[in-house]
Amino acid sequence: MGLFHRESGSAPSETEPAATVVRSDEEWREQLSPAEYQVLRQAGTERPFVGEYTDTTTVGVYNCRACGAELFRSETKFPSHCGWPSFYAPEDAAVIERVDTSLGMRRVEVVCAACKSHLGHVFEGEGYGTPTDLRYCINSISMTLQPAE
């Protein structure tokens, strides 16, 4: 599996855009709960089937819990039954995808483009009937849902 790049369809360059939301480690620790910090800033993963948005069907926008940037819309959320919220596409330029070789395997990590917080991973070719054949597997604790009015 390669890196995905939504804007142009080609592989991303070696350099990433700089974070627009920059805080010190101490500031992140003050702002986030210990569980949020572990996932968002240390690339942890919450346990499957326990996140508040795993099965949510509420219409709205999912924002980064760390910085508030818009990440996904409910229209792109789908039931994957994998234990975490799944989306088939992020908002334009909302996320950065990078190779993750931790745990002895090759995956593609998804981070917030604005603050570089860890959100989850993206997988392709799993056979879900979505327009992109991608599954953005995102930790609930990485997001907040802003319901539509």
Score class of each variant (00 low, 15 high):
Leu32Trp: 01
Val108Gln: 12
Gln42Arg: 15
Tyr88Gln: 06
His118Leu: 04
Arg106Met: 13
Ser33Pro: 05
Ala66Lys: 04
Cys64Val: 09
Glu46Thr: 11
Val111Arg: 11
Arg73Ser: 14
Ala114Ile: 07
Thr58Tyr: 04
Thr58Val: 13
Thr76Phe: 03
Leu71Ala: 07
Gly44Asn: 06
Pro34Phe: 06
Trp84Gln: 03
Val50Trp: 00
Tyr88Pro: 05
Tyr62Val: 08
Ala43Ile: 09
Phe78Gly: 09
Val50Glu: 09
Val110Cys: 08
Arg65His: 10
Gln38Trp: 13
Met105Val: 10
Tyr62Glu: 00
Pro48Thr: 10
Arg73Cys: 13
Val59Ala: 13
Glu97Cys: 13
Arg107His: 05
Cys67Ile: 06
Arg98Glu: 13
Ser86Tyr: 05
Thr101Ala: 10
Asp92Phe: 14
Val39Gln: 01
Thr101Glu: 13
Tyr53Arg: 05
Phe72Ile: 10
Thr57Asn: 14
Glu75His: 09
Ser74Met: 06
Cys112Asn: 10
Arg107Met: 06
Asp100Thr: 03
Pro79Ile: 04
Ala93Pro: 08
Ala94Trp: 10
Lys116Asp: 13
Leu71Trp: 00
Pro79Phe: 01
Glu109Gln: 12
Arg41His: 05
Ser33Ile: 01
Thr56Phe: 12
Tyr62Leu: 13
Ser102Gln: 08
Ser86Gln: 06
Glu97Thr: 13
Trp84Ala: 04
Lys116Thr: 07
Cys115Ala: 07
Leu71Cys: 10
Glu109Phe: 05
Val95Trp: 03
Gly68Glu: 06
Ala114Lys: 10
Pro90Gln: 06
Ile96Leu: 15
Arg98His: 14
Ser80Tyr: 08
Val108Lys: 10
Ser74Trp: 00
Ala114Thr: 12
Cys82Met: 09
Ser86Val: 08
Val50Met: 09
Glu52Met: 14
His118Phe: 08
Ser117Arg: 04
Leu71Tyr: 06
Trp84Thr: 00
Arg73Asp: 14
His118Ala: 05
Val110Tyr: 01
Ser102Thr: 14
Ala114Pro: 08
Ser117Gly: 15
Cys112Gln: 03
Arg65Ile: 07
Gly51Ser: 09
Glu52Lys: 15
Tyr88Gly: 12
Thr45Phe: 02
Glu109Ser: 07
Val99Pro: 14
Val61Ile: 14
Pro48Leu: 01
Asp55Gln: 12
Phe49Cys: 10
Pro34Gln: 10
Glu109Tyr: 02
Cys67Gln: 03
Phe78Lys: 04
Ala93Ile: 00
Ala69Ser: 15
Ala66Ser: 15
Ala89Thr: 11
Glu70Arg: 14
Asp100Met: 09
Lys77Glu: 05
Lys77Leu: 05
Ala35Asp: 11
Arg47Leu: 14
